[in-house]
């Protein structure tokens, strides 16, 4: 993966930039309808304001710490309207509605919750469905994974993997960027296409073991295909080596259950009759239990 363009931690920077701009807007009493954020990749003020000399002195606008947290989280949402929404809320929080976040039915609060929920679901599903493929390069094991998150969550998920897979070398690639960990440092690079990713990786033999496990941990007598699909929608299937099994397992489930129900039952004495030792052992435990019960 050498030769790829380096990339900065973008989400945190974007948020920092938004915060600075929002502060300036607020200090210049720019109402939400007049605030502009839609300036491509880089957030920049459309016109120059007089910068206050000392931020500490003029920073009289207090907002709840919880707002900073949810706002920071929301900066991972892909939709640019997030900046407008956040400024609207900031404006209201500092103009007579300090309790705004508690108004669960307020349209802005609902929009914030909805968008943040989409982000946290995206993070959660990415942590769950990323699959690392092992390959060896000059004797060193390296793990590769591909995922297409809906939002800008690569950094958050990469940090989670750093804590979990600290002693492994790994790369997670997405169309929007790649994260690389070499057991010491997390590095970001430009995104790649799925085709390029496929050339980088080979099939991991453990996938066959995983498929075997998946096949056999499934209970055909409890088929609930809709429940599975609502938790693991088809769009995730391409990352999962086990997903190739789903159609066949589903199709054969009812047949398997009917077959089980129609089989003749076995005599519980079958083995006891053959093995004296087993019978003695079972009887000893049974009589001990009966004594205990009395």
């Amino acid at each position: 993966m050498t030769g790829m363009a380096e990339k900065q931690l973008t989400v945190q920077q974007d948020f920092k930039r938004w915060r600075e701009m929002a502060r300036t807007y607020l200090q210049n009493a720019v109402i939400p309808a007049d605030a502009r954020w839609d300036l491509g990749d880089q957030l920049a003020l459309p016109f120059s304001f007089e910068q206050p000399k000392s931020a500490a002195k003029t920073n009289k606008h207090q907002v709840p710490a919880a707002f900073i947290q949810v706002a920071q989280f929301l900066s991972q949402h892909r939709d640019h309207s997030k900046w407008t929404l956040l400024y609207q809320m900031l404006w209201r929080l500092t103009h007579g509605e300090p309790y705004l976040l508690r108004l669960s039915s307020d349209p802005a609060v609902r929009q914030l919750h909805r968008m943040n929920k989409a982000v946290s679901r995206d993070i959660h599903k990415m942590k769950a469905f990323v699959r690392f493929n092992s390959s060896s390069h000059s004797g060193e094991e390296h793990f590769h994974a591909w995922f297409e998150p809906e939002h800008l969550v690569l950094e958050a998920v990469a940090e989670f993997f750093v804590k979990r897979f600290t002693a492994m070398n790994w790369t997670v690639c997405t169309p929007g960027g790649c994260a690389h960990w070499n057991q010491k440092q997390l590095r970001l690079s430009e995104g790649i296409t799925y085709a390029v990713y496929q050339q980088m990786t080979e099939d991991d033999e453990m996938n066959e073991y995983w498929r075997q496990y998946y096949r056999h941990i499934f209970n055909p007598a409890r088929l609930k295909e809709a429940a599975m699909k609502s938790e693991m929608p088809k769009k995730y299937w391409k990352y999962l080596p086990e997903s190739v099994l789903i159609p066949k397992l589903t199709q054969k489930a009812t047949l398997n259950m009917t077959h089980m129900l129609s089989q003749p039952a076995t005599d519980p004495e079958r083995l006891r009759a053959k093995s004296k030792k087993l019978k003695q052992q079972q009887n000893a435990i049974r009589s001990k239990n009966q004594k205990q019960a009395q």
Partner: peptide, 28 residues
């Protein structure tokens, strides 16, 4: 728990993660 000190493998605590679902709708 995590492996941040560079030894060992894995982390835990907080929300559990379902890494897959079988066609019986159960979390793996």
């Amino acid at each position: 728990r995590d492996s941040k000190n560079g030894k060992g493998i894995g982390s835990s605590g907080g929300m559990g993660i379902c890494h897959s679902y079988t066609p019986d709708g159960r979390c793996v």
